[in-house]
Amino acid sequence: MTGNATSSAWSSHEGAAALAAPALAEKRRAFDWRILLGLFLPVVIALLWEAAVAFGLAQGRLVPPPSRIFAALWALAETGELWTHAWMTLWRVLVGFVIGAVAGIVLGALSGSNRTIRQVLDPTLQALRAIPSIAWVPLFILWLGIFEASKVALIAVGVFFPVYLGIAGAILSVDRKLVEVGHVFRLSRVQLARRILLPAVLPEAVIALRSGLGLGFMFVVAAEFMGASEGLGYLLVDGQQMGKPDQILAAIIAFALLGKSADSLLVAATRPLVRWQDTVRERL
């Protein structure tokens, strides 16, 4: 009898696996199609520009064709320069992102959950947010010098504001009825935060972190204009000074690939936190 139960359970397991296999395969095929669709537009533009230069419809002097750009990328990769510059840029963004995101989460949570703190803190931060990024450069150089500390500080400033706004706004936009339900069930403040506030805030918090990461890659360019000898921003300056548009565009493409990869890793890392969501996006 035990053997029959075991075989029955095993058969049920095999049946569930057989039913799940087609769904998994279909999901993988859909993922492959999404990748191909995402590559469609840049590939078409690159082929059209390559053809325009090849047939003499454009000179390609200031905007080189893709073949020359990828040749410049390949040359930089062969010498190892590309990896050195890309790693230095990634390291600066990572450190600045961690500092800016932690500060944004802490201050955003305090501002969103306490009216007094918000009234004291928010006006000053909103005024500071309006300052252009380049305006911080001379001040950070004066305070921190021209080396890594000033560059990381500038990136952290760029990351901080979208994270702060996203966290504070997410807390303030939590549905009041959900909080009242928690009070009806007599949840403590810790239980209310863990069971109601945190799940409600997480989706917008992830978007805020992604926005902060994107601004971190934007601010690293300004940071690497501050006397850097390594980094993709340095490649941009070097290409401009040496009159190498292919190197400039190669650095821009490297920035795009690095930023997209970092964003994809952040999305993958935070996906388990918002897996409970049943949204239209998951069904389209």
Rank of each mutant, 00 (worst) to 15 (best):
S173E: 13
L215P: 01
V174H: 03
P162I: 02
V184N: 02
E204G: 12
A149W: 12
W143T: 07
I171F: 12
R186I: 07
L198Q: 04
E204W: 07
V163I: 05
Y164N: 01
R195H: 15
A200S: 10
S173Q: 13
A200R: 00
D175I: 11
A149F: 10
V174N: 01
Y164S: 00
R186T: 12
V201D: 04
A156S: 09
V179P: 15
L192Y: 10
V179A: 13
P203T: 06
G145P: 07
L144N: 04
L215R: 14
R194N: 12
G212L: 08
V174S: 04
G212P: 06
L178Q: 09
R194P: 13
V206I: 07
R186D: 05
R194Y: 09
G182L: 04
V181N: 05
R176F: 12
L202Q: 08
F217A: 05
A168E: 13
V157R: 06
G182C: 08
M218L: 15
V157Y: 00
W143Y: 09
S173F: 09
A170P: 06
F217K: 00
E180P: 07
L142M: 11
V157E: 07
A156H: 02
M218C: 11
L178R: 06
V190F: 15
F161L: 00
F161Q: 00
I171R: 05
K177A: 13
V163E: 03
L144Y: 09
V159R: 12
V206G: 10
G158F: 02
V174M: 06
F185M: 10
K151P: 14
S188F: 00
G158Y: 05
V190E: 15
F147M: 14
A193R: 12
H183C: 10
A168Y: 08
P199D: 07
H183M: 11
R186Q: 14
I167F: 01
E204N: 15
I167V: 10
W143N: 07
L209H: 13
V163T: 07
A153L: 14
L142R: 01
I207E: 15
S150I: 11
I207P: 04
L172Q: 15
L144S: 02
I155A: 07
G158W: 07
G214H: 01
G182W: 00
R195W: 14
G158I: 08
L172R: 15
F160K: 08
W143A: 11
W143Q: 04
V179E: 13
A193M: 14
A200F: 00
L165S: 06
F147Y: 11
V190D: 11
R210F: 02
L165Y: 12
R194C: 11
V181I: 14
R176C: 08
V159G: 03
I207H: 14
R210L: 10
L154Y: 04
V190M: 10
I167Y: 02
S150E: 02
F160A: 07
V174G: 00
V181H: 01
I167W: 01
L213S: 02
R194Q: 13
V152H: 03
A153G: 08
V159L: 13
V206L: 06
P199I: 08
V201F: 11
P199G: 09
L209R: 01
L178K: 13
V174D: 04
